[in-house]
Design a protein around this nucleic acid. Structure first.
Lengths: 236, 236
DNA sequence: CGACAACTTGACGTTAGTCAACCACGGTGG
DNA sequence: CCACCGTGGTTGACTAACGTCAAGTTGTCG
């Protein structure tokens, strides 16, 4: 039985050494002896599409590493408007704020079926003092989140609708050309780009007409990435 | 002679203990013995309005704590568009990415006369291992930056122009009612809100007509904050 | 006092939002 | 198995908002 076969299972921390995602996630480069120091339970969880990982009013006691799938982080305004501030995928950290803040800052909702490791935040805090590697990893992850956030501001919230949609598609494709990639629903895309579903839909229709985008199954697409990049004048 | 009277001066690290900004900045809560460990030079600098603190292509060797004034962090797109991704003020950290990344992520330009402390990034990295307090401070600052970034996404890049301008004004006023506050030029405001200078200008004209905003000297204004908050339906 | 830059205002064009109808698909139940 | 319904997506006609271009106006600094 592999880890992924069982839905909700507790892991002894030692098994982290076997984790396939470890290399790209929080515990990369950790010395084996540091891994063994972790006696707190780390829980492996699978969430179905649409399920909620945590909400902003919740006490922030856990950090999650994302093994598979796509997770959205949403924020609400007092006026009721909502906005997706980030999308997370394999190797990303959800709820890092648990290390320093009392509550989460967002609602985290699965866009696809996802699998995560649920790590007690005080465990991370402890280890970050003892292990320079984890300390560095943590800072790196934090910086990555900030860079992503800045990029979203400049690339996804600026310019005409067509450009925004194209930039989002480039990001979603993960820069790998001629591969199918996950494409969120129109409403979610709108909440990322601050556009309406109709406008997003029209932009996508236009790209299909121009032959640079092809829809596959539901929430899946293929694109000619280098063409997309030319549209927004990015180096190919 | 106080620190601020001289334009560009090297400080022995011991003087950090006397720094008035220390409480709110990076070195808050540091033990005196930790402060004394710092033998690397910390440079105190004053920049005039319009001067550049660092640019994105520069090697990131220093972190800056902002003592006074307002600093903008700008990012450029390949297409040439530019966007202000954050404004920093008293107590904020500029160039934190120097701890983990090789280069800066933004151009940092003074919007007003500013004063900063220029701290070698490897000093911060070293100390963050030795001092749990600094370690915590660093994580806190990082989280603050991320929260700010998220807020800018949801509050300043969403909704009609009037709302965006109002939300920016609320932020600029620092929530202190009936006090004069710094207001950037229209073009900069536009680059924060992703609006044109004309649209910003019109929005401001409208607010003045409605009697909720009053211009003072150049780049300075006063507003009825609680009225502003009602406009965007925020709790007063 | 003059010159320049920043800001404002107006008229107009373009883009995205709105409202509404329609279509396509998947699941449910008869 | 197929009709039905619901959801998400698309399309069209119209409207409102913002951008653009251009001409003033104000303000500031030498």
């Amino acid at each position: 039985m592999t880890i992924a076969e069982n839905n909700k299972e507790f892991l002894a921390s030692e098994e982290c050494a076997l984790c396939p995602t470890r290399e790209i996630a929080l515990f990369a480069n950790l010395k084996p002896e540091d891994l063994l120091q972790m006696h707190s339970p780390i829980q492996y969880k699978v969430l179905e599409k649409g399920e909620t990982l945590y909400t902003h009013d919740e006490k922030a006691d856990y950090i999650y590493t994302l093994h598979d799938g796509v997770l959205k982080l949403e924020q609400y305004l007092p006026s009721g408007e909502q906005r997706i501030v980030r999308l997370l995928r394999r190797g990303d950290l959800a709820g890092i704020e648990a290390v320093t803040a009392a509550n989460y800052q967002h609602d985290a909702i699965a866009l696809t079926k996802i699998s995560v490791c649920k790590i007690p935040s005080n465990l991370v805090l402890d280890l970050s003092h003892k292990s320079p590697e984890l300390h560095a990893n943590l800072l790196n992850k934090w910086q990555l989140a900030l860079t992503t956030s800045d990029t979203w501001l400049t690339k996804l919230s600026t310019g005409p609708s067509r450009y925004r949609v194209v930039r989002l598609l480039i990001w979603l494709s993960g820069n790998s050309p001629d591969e199918e990639f996950y494409m969120p629903g129109r409403e979610d895309m709108g909440n990322i780009l601050s556009l309406t579903t109709e406008t997003v839909s029209r932009a996508i229709a236009g790209l299909r007409r121009d032959g640079v985008l092809e829809l596959r199954g539901s929430n899946s697409a293929m694109a000619d990435i280098s063409n997309l990049k030319q549209i927004v004048k990015e180096p190919t």
